[in-house]
Simulated assay, not measured.
Amino acid sequence: MIATTGATGHLGQLTVYALLDQGIAPQDIVALVRDPQKAASLSALGVQVRRADYTQPETLKTALEGVEKVLLVSSSDFADRVGQHRHVIEAAKQAGVKLLAYTSILRADTSRLSLAADHKATEELVRASGLTFVFLRNSWYMENYNPAQAVQHGAVAGSAGKGRVSAAARADYAAAAAAVLTQPGHDNAVYELGGDEAFTLTELAAEVQAQSGRPVTYQDMPQETYAQMLRGVGLPGVVADMLANSDVCLAQGDLYTESRDLSRLIGRPTTTLKEAVKAALA
């Protein structure tokens, strides 16, 4: 059996679908969720739905019974992300899981992103556990950008300067996760994942303008100004600060990769900027 945590979230759910596309029988897929009622659509497909809460270790031990491989989708809780991940890692070891794949961040061991510290610490926990692992070090998601909002305001805002980001669609990252969970030859591998064609936020704005027919420009601003803008539109301070910091690090190259690991794993080119903008505006 193959399990994925966070299976009602964007990436986790897409991974379940990708496993089904790989020909894995629904009954051999375990969707680990905090609220099983929110996974009715997965149950309807024949997927096993089990309650698993990162903050409640006893649920994790039960949920991982009989599971051979597990995808640990990183927690979105900034308060104690590493502690939550530790619970899953320990439960996986107790359950005899043979492979743990973890969604980390690009070059987690050297990245300057504030996000990277938790990912680096989690990778260290996984290595120390003795579990066979795969680190899926994801760059940015295409879905982090909102072309419709850019059209509405006539601008893409950020602090990324002329930096290039190797963003890819969530579905691409999910397909990569399904590949390492279903195919041999990935034991203790570390993959630096990103889109085939990196782009600047100026190029993003130009593509949105070209497809929408409305004027859209990139507005670059200092880190704190951008963070204040994000707070002003309702984002929590910790999230606003993280996004602004990520943009500054993007400008320095921390979200850029030429590895092509992602397209090799999924066996096709990654989603292009043009395709992503088209899908978002639709």
Rank of each mutant, 00 (worst) to 15 (best):
D28W: 12
E197T: 14
S111Q: 14
Y226R: 03
E275G: 01
R260C: 04
L235G: 01
A282Y: 13
G185E: 06
E258Q: 14
A280D: 07
A205F: 10
H85R: 03
A169T: 00
Q149E: 09
W140C: 03
G161L: 12
Q149F: 09
H85G: 01
K162E: 11
G163R: 12
L273K: 03
G23E: 08
T8Y: 13
A177G: 08
G253Q: 12
A198V: 02
S76E: 12
S212T: 01
D77T: 05
T271W: 05
N188A: 04
V70M: 10
T8Q: 09
L11N: 04
N138T: 11
A168I: 01
V216D: 00
A31E: 02
S159K: 08
G161R: 09
R86H: 15
D21R: 15
M142Y: 15
M142I: 00
Y191D: 01
L100D: 05
V277S: 01
D172M: 06
T200S: 09
T257Q: 08
F78E: 05
E124P: 01
G213E: 07
K93L: 13
D247C: 12
S41R: 15
A44T: 05
D261I: 01
S246W: 14
L193I: 03
Q84E: 11
L265N: 04
A108K: 14
Y145F: 13
P147K: 06
G194Q: 10
T5K: 07
S139V: 00
Q219V: 00
A40G: 13
S43W: 15
T217C: 08
S43E: 15
V180H: 11
I266H: 06
A25M: 11
Q211P: 11
R231Q: 11
V49T: 00
V30W: 06
V88S: 07
T225H: 14
V165Q: 04
V208I: 08
A101F: 14
D261F: 11
K69A: 06
G234R: 08
P222L: 15
G130C: 10
S76I: 15
A276N: 09
T103E: 02
A44I: 10
A276H: 13
Q219E: 13
A31R: 02
P57N: 12
A205E: 02
Y173I: 00
V277K: 02
A148Q: 07
N144P: 05
A227M: 07
A39C: 09
N138M: 12
D80P: 04
L115K: 07
R51Q: 08
S111E: 13
I89H: 02
L20D: 05
G83E: 04
L20T: 06
R137T: 08
S259V: 03
V208T: 00
Q228I: 01
T182R: 09
P184T: 00
R112L: 12
A150D: 07
A44F: 15
K61R: 14
E90T: 11
T132Y: 14
T103G: 08
R50K: 11
T55H: 15
A240C: 07
A117F: 14
Q13L: 12
A3P: 02
Y17F: 15
S111V: 08
G6N: 05
R86N: 10
A44P: 11
L230C: 01
G23C: 12
V239L: 15
V277A: 01
A276W: 15
T132F: 14
N138L: 13
